[in-house]
């Protein structure tokens, strides 16, 4: 067992846990986007940052990847953390305003506007689908390509993958682009991955542009 302090509360947790698990275990909420309990930690969305150590030498780390240490001091909602989190949500809102998950996050954290050039992207590259595909489905059908601005998710060379079993796990887990498979008839959306009834893809020109890996979609059977 390891003893650490989370928000001033002395906590005893099992060794090998991450800060995120420990904080949630004792009831402190930490927002996450790229984290899923069934998948390996990735630490890419940085929403789960917490402040560790004593000031002025404290630093921000992603709680989903940081293992608990004996005597560690953690603050899950200090001014510094909230400011960083707010800025990340603002950046998310500037890129993917149509996602229900991100809208919910923004409203929960009091972010009501964003100050950057508005973009409408389908994907925030959280990597949940890639990890689901490789870790849960053992398929390795999709992966990351390119770097920086040109980073994207897809099959190698955009060719339909032989190893993809059309399980739909990637769509199920996606926090941003949940509505890809409803095409232009949201009322017929039978894919239960999404709770957002105003899909962004209505305005989109065609199914081919939606980078859906399901051909045909197992849920709503669009060809």
């Amino acid at each position: 067992m390891v003893t650490l302090t989370i928000n001033g509360l002395k906590v005893r947790v099992e060794e090998g846990m991450t800060i995120l698990e420990a904080a949630r275990f004792v009831g402190f909420p930490i927002p996450t986007l790229c984290h899923n309990d069934g998948l390996s930690p990735y630490g890419a969305c940085r929403l789960c940052v917490v402040e560790i150590g004593q000031e002025p030498k404290s630093k921000l780390v992603s709680s989903c990847t940081y293992p608990v240490e004996e005597g560690l001091t953690v603050r899950t909602a200090s001014q510094r953390v909230l400011k960083a989190r707010g800025m990340i949500i603002e950046l998310l809102l500037a890129s993917c305003p149509q996602s229900k998950t991100i809208q919910d996050l923004a409203s929960a954290h009091g972010v009501h506007q964003q100050r950057f050039k508005q973009e409408y992207e389908d994907c925030i590259l959280c990597g949940l689908c890639v990890r689901t595909c490789s870790e849960q489905m053992m398929a390795h059908a999709i992966g990351f390509r390119g770097r920086g601005e040109n980073r994207s998710i897809g099959t190698p060379f955009d060719i339909s993958s032989d190893v993809c079993r059309l399980c739909g796990g990637c769509m199920y887990i996606c926090p941003a682009c949940q509505l890809r498979c409803t095409y232009n008839q949201p009322q017929h959306a039978i894919c239960n991955a999404c709770a957002n009834l105003r899909p962004p893809c209505i305005e989109k020109e065609g199914y081919n542009n939606l980078m859906c890996y399901m051909e045909p979609c197992v849920a709503c059977e669009i060809k």
């Binding site: 790229c34 050039k117 920086g148 601005e149 980073r151």
Partner: peptide, 18 residues
């Protein structure tokens, strides 16, 4: 930097671009 950021971590990818 925006071209050379690996793009894994969201604030770096978007932040450098912004």
């Amino acid at each position: 930097l925006k071209d050379e950021s690996c793009g894994k971590c969201f604030p770096c990818r978007k932040g450098t671009q912004r």
